[in-house]
């Protein structure tokens, strides 16, 4: 990692934390996988306050998804000191003078790891316990009062009967703009979803937008310590998050979404925690939407890689593996609903 970046970080932190006195960077490394942000782990030693770990999330030159850092920062802030574990969100920086691109700073959650979607059994003996926590936390996200949240300041609240339409239009537009070749499966799915919309949202909630294996940290004892990657957070139908969490892409074990509980078990835990009902027909609609949204994201990443604007191997992986996966899942759904 360049000394230049280290010096810039010291300069920024000294500006933000004058009370800390002299600041030294003990370690600086980039974290793999953050294709929507460049993520750096920074270990610092402060003259007053001692050692601490920080995470810097910097806007990329281009990314899997075009997102607003304000949204992600506000989402983290919406769950500080609640029963939804998140890292402390410290500073949001829009000025370019510090790290050339906007960024925000969070507390590091130490001694934890994230599961991999390619792992056969990402949680080992903690699979059930983590699964119950995972769907319980998602239920708590759905229960959070929207009106008092910081996210409500930066994300528009849709009417309950059109939350689905707003999201569908958003991702249809992504496909319109980014497809490199015609997408007959996606187009058929979009038409189907418009013809057969879901029932109105039972309540409008904060939607994480990417709640899945890989986007939370757990400790060696199997306790979930932090929910991360809120860059697609918005206000909408909480079933959107549930369907996304249940999508089979998130685990090689197709019978246990995310490598945790069975689908029915996960839905049951979520219903108890949220106090909401996962209407099967509405959840089926949102499941189709989840695959379409995934497809749109992978189409975008393939375009970025093909254009050379982002050659991170994760972008190519998304286009080569994830895109055909969700294309097939959507095609299977079209057949099921046609028969």
């Amino acid at each position: 990692m360049s000394d230049n970046l280290e010096q810039r970080i010291v300069r920024y932190l000294s500006h933000r934390m004058p009370e800390a006195g002299k600041i030294l960077v003990l370690a600086l490394s980039r974290i793999h996988g953050g294709a929507s942000r460049e993520t750096f782990r920074v270990r610092i030693d402060c003259e007053r306050g001692g050692e601490r770990g920080l995470i810097f999330r910097r806007d990329p030159v281009s990314s899997l998804i075009e997102t607003e850092r304000e949204t992600e920062f506000a989402a983290f802030r919406s769950f500080q000191d609640t029963n939804v574990p998140v890292p402390g969100a410290l500073y949001l920086e829009r000025e370019l003078e510090w790290l050339e691109r906007p960024f925000f700073v969070m507390e590091e959650i130490e001694g934890c790891t994230a599961g991999s979607i390619l792992a056969a059994d990402p949680y080992g003996p903690h699979r059930r316990s983590i699964g119950e926590q995972f769907f319980t936390i998602l239920g708590h996200i759905a229960k959070r009062d929207v009106g008092t949240s910081e996210l409500a300041r930066v994300s528009a609240l849709p009417a309950g009967d059109v939350a689905w339409a707003r999201e569908l239009e958003k991702w249809e537009k992504v496909i319109d703009e980014d497809e490199l070749e015609p997408q007959p499966v996606a187009r058929a799915a979009i038409r189907r979803m418009k013809r057969q919309p879901p029932s109105p949202a039972q309540r409008l909630s904060i939607v994480h937008g990417d709640y899945r294996t890989g986007n939370f940290l757990f400790n060696p004892q199997g306790k979930i310590r932090a929910v991360l990657d809120w860059e697609m957070a918005h206000l909408g139908d909480p079933l959107e998050d549930l369907a996304w969490a249940l999508d089979p892409l998130w685990s090689g074990d197709r019978d246990h979404p995310g490598g945790m509980l069975t689908r029915d078990e996960g839905v049951g835990v979520w219903e108890r925690a949220s106090g909401l009902r996962a209407d099967p027909a509405a959840l089926a609609w949102w499941s189709m939407f989840a695959s379409l949204k995934g497809l749109a994201i992978w189409i975008s990443s393939a375009k970025e890689y093909q254009a050379g604007t982002n050659t991170d191997p994760v972008m190519a992986f998304s286009g080569l593996y994830c895109l055909p996966f969700h294309n097939k899942r959507l095609a299977d759904m079209l057949v099921e609903r046609a028969s």
């Binding site: 056969a120 007959p184 055909p324 294309n327 079209l334 057949v335």
Partner: peptide, 23 residues
């Protein structure tokens, strides 16, 4: 016609899937 199209889309999507070993 619709059924034939959907069946084609299903078969084509299945043929293009990529398989990875668990790691």
């Amino acid at each position: 016609i619709e059924a034939r199209i959907v069946a084609f889309l299903r078969d084509a999507a299945a043929a293009r899937q990529v398989f990875l070993p668990a790691m």
